[in-house]
Nucleic acid binder design. Structure first.
Length: 837
DNA sequence: CCCTGCAATGTTTTT
DNA sequence: CATTGCAGGG
């Protein structure tokens, strides 16, 4: 069968495109992964492109894994089974990590650098704040982290941060950022942001190297392009500098990572950047029913600045969305669990095909509880990662130190775990001592105290004899004063690391080395003594870590020979003594993977792995992007939960929440349930809620209320909303709209063709009633009311559900004042309203 | 120097 | 409501 035969015309056009920039605007469910994978196969099979010349970049490991699988399949099917391994398919961050491994020496790192996760990063920031004598203020620490992240997302190293500082706060932040970068490099470590920024700096300083890679990867594809940040964009620019064969796929309506520095400008401005770019729109949706797509459109159409695009499907109609309002959050979870139970028993759907989406991870607990109670197998994706658990981080810390002995954050983490009588006071003295010339590192300080004479490879060795300052003298005196018990403890720590390094050099089985190490450390005894009830869990987690390593070792061989990086890592390190050992490679690869993969915590029922029908999936809406399920429960649909708006002065926040809701809705293939609760526990106390404005935006013809619901309408908001609170936001919401009550014209979705404010709209329908001060007319209106409408609940296609407050005039042309649950008070012509009761 | 008990404080979203 | 940080006794 012909390779591209199964594609529709636009899909085919995109897949057949070979040279030059390509922008694929792919609506939700339009088969974008299909297009990417077919394009890869087409390049290799029909166009004779060498697999090594292809690079596909994604954001998540899940997406990368899926793409790899499907490319594998396609190439196998079409007689090129070997080719798949040559194609590089990677996330941005692991691509960055691999580039850095290869060129570590050019950016102030060594081959053995470690990757700090968020927790490590926060620890380092706190440490540095202490050292700088700054107030230990958590919110300040957060701001500093935010600043550093923002700079790195823009690809701005400290010197650029200094240049762009406009006020004294930015200036101070820039100094801190500079300190932070220095400390990271002293520890031979990088953070997540560095995984993008450091390769970028490498290419900026060395354009010839960038050119080399851009010749190597002649065809580059990027998935979820709307979520790229400026640093990633610039990195791509370097990587495509030679041929400009950049093919990007994305959907501006699914941009949900603005808070992480992503900018939709990258996708919206693509043609500006590449005037010769071919643009292909994929608008046929193969996933959902018309009802679901319409509901999604009801929500997203309120956003300004969208690319014109209209999803369509040939699956007409479909089940209406089912809405359920619970009296509280617990009942909400109960309802979801009951409903799933019923559907599973009736064989309407398999557990595999059901998902629950919530806005924040914390919401997941209640659902977990109720599912367990109902005896339903489930899987939680995301949340507290396995690799973030204390016991796992402890063990990994030792491994990281063994590889990279200058890693200060990890040394401080485990120097007293298990207890070695080395507390904060001693650690403090060691930290100060590490800054004395001639000592240089924490391990230098430990050696000074214990009298050990061994130097670890990988430690900095810049000893420049010069007179010490009095601070340094003080630090040395403090080191001298460290007591006997502490010295013994430090010696134990030193020997522990030493023996772990010895083992890594002499044995090949990483899992075996680990088992012995954990034994030697008496780590299980430590867990028993420190934790009562949880110690069994923790021990099991550690064992699971060893199992994970064992499994990793089994598959490792294939991984190491993948794509263009084949053999390159080995070459780069041949100078190092440690690097001769297989276990060291495996360890380093494992550590990278564990840092880069957000492994979801396993469900309670993981033992029976292949149970029939699988299990229900629980995850945040963010986690759901790129996935699809037959039946979806969108829960917690209340204002302040979803949308969760932190900064009410920033209208962009609501826009992003809207896109998030759009993503959630478009995950559903056939059945969508939307639930909320009238009150919900926040910090242990009940708080009254209001229905989500997004839910109210969905036309009532698309949903029905479950008879079991506590409320028969969506008019249960407890307190009046104050429309004055954010007038700008409201303006924004309506500004871009195609206008009232005629079908949404997609060509009008461009921002400059914005149609009407609410007042303009009113002018269209009833010019004579227009007025900025409606106060005077009130009494008259009420007297002239048609009677039949007074106090009725009505719905409007755009404003949703509201209650009639006043009516003036009669018949279809009557003007009705309605207070909408989601949109405040409006005057609307009678004929645009549907009366509910 | 370590452990226990109390208080404060906080929740987006993820590579 | 949980978790995390901090103060004071052992």
């Amino acid at each position: 069968m012909e390779l591209l035969g199964s594609l529709n015309p636009p899909q085919r056009e995109a897949a057949e495109h070979v040279d030059g920039p390509l922008l694929i605007l792919a609506g939700a469910g339009s088969g974008k992964t299909r297009v990417i994978t077919h394009r890869v196969a087409h390049l290799v099979i029909d166009r004779g492109v060498h697999p090594e010349q292809i690079l596909a970049v994604t954001f998540t490991n899940k997406a990368a894994g899926e793409m790899r699988e499907r490319v594998d399949e396609l190439l196998k099917e079409h007689g090129a089974p070997e080719a798949s391994a040559g194609v590089t398919i990677s996330t941005f961050h692991s691509l960055g990590a691999r580039l850095l491994r290869r060129h570590a020496d050019q950016v102030g790192l060594t081959w053995s650098f470690n990757i700090y996760d968020d927790g490590d990063q926060a620890k380092l920031i706190r440490e540095l704040m202490d050292r700088a004598g700054m107030d230990r203020d958590r919110s300040h620490a957060r701001r500093l982290r935010g600043f550093i992240e923002r700079m790195k997302n823009r690809g701005a190293p400290p010197d650029r941060a200094h240049e762009s500082a406009f006020n004294s706060e930015d200036e101070e932040n820039a100094y801190f950022y500079e300190d932070y970068q220095k400390a990271l490099r002293r520890s031979n470590c990088v953070d997540f942001g560095d995984l993008i920024m450091a390769p970028l700096e490498l290419f900026r300083a060395n354009p010839a190297l960038a050119a080399m890679y851009s010749r190597q990867w002649r065809y580059i594809m990027v998935d979820e392009f709307q979520d790229t940040n400026p640093a990633q964009y610039e990195l791509l620019a370097h990587l495509t500098s030679e041929y400009h064969n950049l093919a990007v796929v994305g959907d501006d309506d699914q941009a949900i990572y603005r808070w992480r520095g992503a900018t939709v400008a990258n996708i919206l401005g693509f043609e500006g950047e590449f005037p010769k770019a071919r643009v292909v729109k994929l608008e046929q949706n193969y996933r959902s029913t018309q009802v679901i797509l319409d509901a999604a459109d009801d929500v997203i159409r309120h956003n300004p600045s969208r690319r014109a695009k209209k999803l369509w499907t040939d699956q007409e109609g479909g089940d209406p969305i089912k809405v359920f309002t619970a009296s509280d959050d617990r009942e909400e979870a109960q309802y979801v669990a009951d409903t799933i139970r019923t559907k599973l028993s009736a064989r309407e759907v398999e557990a595999d095909d059901v998902a629950i989406f919530y806005r924040t991870n914390a919401q997941g607990r209640l659902f977990e509880e109720q599912l367990r109670y109902a005896g339903i197998d489930y899987e939680i994706v995301g949340g507290m990662s396995f690799y973030q658990r204390a016991e796992i981080k402890d063990v990994l810390a030792y491994l990281k130190i063994a590889l990279n002995p200058v890693n200060e954050v990890d040394i401080l983490r485990v120097i007293n775990t298990p207890s070695r009588s080395v507390g904060d006071a001693t650690a403090q003295k060691l930290s100060e001592g590490a800054r004395v010339r001639g000592i240089e590192t924490l391990f230098g300080a430990i050696r000074f105290v214990t009298g050990a004479d061994m130097t670890f490879e990988g430690e900095l060795e810049l000893i420049e004899p010069s007179p010490r300052t009095s601070d340094e003298d003080d630090a040395l005196i403090a080191l001298d004063k460290i007591g006997g018990a502490q010295t013994t403890g430090l010696r134990d720590f030193h020997d522990t690391i030493q023996s772990l390094r010895d083992d890594l050099m002499h044995y090949d089985s990483l899992a075996e080395i680990m088992r012995q190490f954990i034994e030697r450390l008496n780590y299980f005894d430590y867990l028993d003594s420190k934790f009562e009830a949880e110690s069994e869990d923790k021990k099991r987690n550690v064992s699971e870590l060893v199992n994970a390593i064992e499994e990793f070792e089994r598959d490792w061989q294939q991984d190491a020979t993948e794509g263009v990086f084949k053999g390159a890592d080995l070459l780069a390190e041949s100078a190092s003594a440690l690097s001769g050992a297989v276990a060291v490679y495996k360890l380093r690869a494992f550590l990278d993977q564990s840092a880069l993969i957000q492994a979801g915590s396993k469900s309670e029922t993981e033992e029976d792995a292949d149970l029939l029908g699988g299990r229900v999936t629980l995850m945040t809406v963010h986690g759901s992007k790129g996935l699809e399920f037959d039946t979806v429960f969108m829960v917690g649909m209340e204002d302040e939960v979803f949308p969760s708006i932190r900064d009410k002065t920033d209208p962009e926040e609501e826009h992003e929440e809207r896109r998030l809701a759009y993503v959630a809705i478009t995950r559903a293939k056939r059945h969508l349930f939307v639930t909320n609760a009238k009150r919900r526990r926040v910090y242990g106390q009940f708080k009254d809620t209001s229905p989500s404005r997004f839910l109210l935006d969905v036309d009532p013809s698309r949903w029905v209320i479950d008879p079991k619901s506590t409320s028969r309408d969506l008019d249960w908001r407890p307190k009046r909303r104050t429309p004055k609170a954010k007038p700008l936001t409201d303006e924004d919401r309506y500004f871009s709209d195609g206008g009232p009550d005629y079908s949404f014209d997609q060509s009008g979705a461009a921002p400059d063709q914005a149609a009407a404010t609410e007042w303009d709209e009113f002018a269209q329908v009833a010019p004579s009633e227009q007025g900025w001060s409606s106060g005077g007319g009130h009494d008259q209106e009420e007297e002239a009311s048609g009677g039949d409408l007074a106090d009725k609940t009505v719905t409007h296609t755009r404003f949703g559900v509201g209650r009639v407050e006043a009516v003036s005039g009669v018949g279809d042309k009557a003007v009705v004042t309605v207070r909408f649950a989601g949109a405040g008070r409006k005057k609307i012509m009678r004929r645009f309203l549907k009366v509910l009761g």
